[in-house]
Write a protein that binds this DNA or RNA. Structure first.
Length: 479
RNA sequence: CGAGAAGUAGCACAGCUUGGUAGUGCACCACGCUUGGGACGUGGGGGUCGCAGGUUCGAAUCCUGUCUUCUCGACCA
């Protein structure tokens, strides 16, 4: 069988999901390892996805008044140490610069693992009056965390992200901003990445180091494990007190502003792979795919075919559609597989058989549906097909998510569900961290993913200790 | 950071037990032939065998150390 070679190349999703993931990343040429553990090259196909994510999110941010800035990569030790919870949270994984040329530095500098401290320093210098508020900033950058176990996109030492940092006059305004940004992430991830999520608040033990409240969107991967896809934090005035950020209010009194931060990283690319990918490789949602369609001429030595292929290519380009054309002398099967492994949402096959009938064949990557379209309709039909594909991909992922949400009313049910199934398990919780720890230990690693915004009461008692329940919690095993 | 596995050409591997100067398939280059699911033929280029020490006349092969990758844990976005 001609296809066997190709099938060998990617491990089946159901045989070994972890190996499948690595195979897809490699075969789709998204990234490459380097000689530094956990640091990777984002190759053109992978970086283009990130560029589209940036473009799309950045526009949404700016529509709400966000301004982009850029902070230094280095943070002096003394500055990092100002907020106790924060430094304790990050200390184990920061890298330090101790030499400048040949000379030891008087104070060592950490390579940013996140930039709260730098933003606070900046805010402290520039904030005077309530009239200066709010300050709503974001930066696109890379950060470094000395991870011990690394995987492409999911956990690397250096990764790309955006981190938003804002300060506000009132806690209400800051809380609104926290929620507003989570809404943006939710909307972006569901509509543009076609990834359905559950969302809500993190428990004390899972929240960001130094935050008063952390909100999250959590996606479910094809293997039933959860991936925290974006977070938004409300800081209260804890950071601004620690960093002495203050302003004079309307009553001529010094007060501390209220603060937020929020971020989304290249990790989301891992989610795209693990939610939509299949045994033939990557499947990119049309909204985020760098190339929307690959034109594949069949029998390219025939000038009349090339002529039609080039004409369609030019027309699609003219209407702003990013498409590519495969003019190599590979066999059609090779070209098909190549387009599929890269996750390009559609291909346009143009061969002798098509030309006889005055049509081309458009093939969807997600379900391989073949659609015959007359030559003159390609430019109008292709956008419709992509639109439908985007919807269908979301729907399919949504069904997967919903069919992998379970309920547990007692510890046995919880343990059994995690033993037998994979996905989210809803259960009531008393609010005690000891119960979270016990659940984690007894289920083989399930943690609280979030307390959903739309809490339902499925029981009166904590699933673990049996005391009065305070919250409904989604538990899951996470990446 | 703990447990396991692995590093030999771009990729996947063989060779190692029993030391003697490196091979196969795919990919790549040239030419020919071919094109509706990873064709074929002929010829060609490419490797300080992860790195560093050691043993030896001689090391891909034996010994020690180290780095990296993968899997599973603990930790984290």
């Amino acid at each position: 069988m001609a296809n066997e070679k190709f099938l060998d190349a990617i491990t089946s999703r159901d045989v070994d999901f972890a190996q499948w993931y690595t195979d897809v990343v490699r075969k789709a040429k998204l990234c490459e390892y380097t000689s530094i553990k956990g640091c990777m090259v984002y190759m053109p196909a992978g970086y283009a996805i990130w560029e589209n994510i940036q473009k799309n999110l950045d526009a949404r941010f700016k529509a709400t008044g966000v301004k982009n800035v850029y902070m230094p990569m280095l943070i002096p030790e003394s500055l990092l140490n100002k907020e106790k919870d924060h430094v304790n949270g990050f200390a184990p994984e920061v890298a330090w610069v101790t030499m400048g040329g040949a000379n030891p530095l008087e104070e060592k500098l950490c390579i940013r693992p996140t930039s709260e401290t730098l933003f606070c320093e900046h805010f402290a210098k520039n904030l005077n009056s309530y009239r200066d508020l709010p300050m709503v900033y974001n930066q696109w950058c890379s950060v470094l965390r000395w991870e011990k176990t690394t995987r492409p996109f999911l956990r690397s030492k250096e990764f790309l992200w955006q981190e938003g940092h804002t300060i506000h006059e009132t806690s209400e305004e800051a809380k609104d901003r926290t929620k507003m940004m989570l809404d943006i992430y939710h909307d972006f991830v569901e509509n543009d990445l076609a990834i359905p999520v559950i969302w809500g608040q993190k428990t004390e033990s899972e929240k960001f180091a130094g935050a008063e409240a952390t909100y999250t969107i959590e996606a479910l991967m094809h293997d039933g494990k959860a991936l925290q896809s974006a977070t938004s934090h409300y800081f209260g005035d804890g950071f601004s007190k620690a960093f002495d950020v203050k302003f004079i209010d309307k009553n001529n009194k010094y007060v501390n502003p209220f603060q937020t931060s929020w971020g989304l990283s290249t990790r989301i690319i891992g989610a795209i792979i693990m939610v939509h990918g299949d045994d033939d490789g990557l499947v990119l949602p049309p909204h985020i795919a760098p190339i929307k369609s690959m034109i594949i001429p069949i029998g390219h030595n025939k000038p009349e075919i090339l002529e039609v292929a080039n004409k369609i290519y030019d027309e699609l380009k003219k209407q702003g559609m990013v498409v590519d054309i495969d003019l190599s002398d590979k066999t059609p099967g090779y070209k098909f597989s190549n387009q599929e492994v890269q996750g390009i949402p559609t291909r346009i096959e143009i061969g002798p058989r098509d030309l006889e009938n005055g049509v081309v064949t458009i093939v969807r990557r997600d379900n391989r549906e073949k659609i015959s379209i007359s030559l003159e309709d390609v430019t109008t039909k292709l956008p419709e097909i992509l639109k439908q594909m985007q919807k269908d991909m979301y729907q399919k992922a949504k069904e997967h998510l919903e069919s992998h949400i379970y309920e547990a009313h007692n510890m046995d049910e919880l343990i059994n569900t995690f033993n037998e199934k994979s996905g989210f398990v809803k259960a009531m919780w008393c609010g005690d961290e000891a119960c979270e720890d016990e659940i984690k230990a007894k289920t083989g690693g399930a943690t609280s993913r979030c307390i959903p915004f739309n809490e339902e009461g499925i029981s009166e008692k904590c699933v673990c200790c049996g005391k009065d329940a305070k919250h409904l919690v989604y538990f899951g095993k996470a990446y």
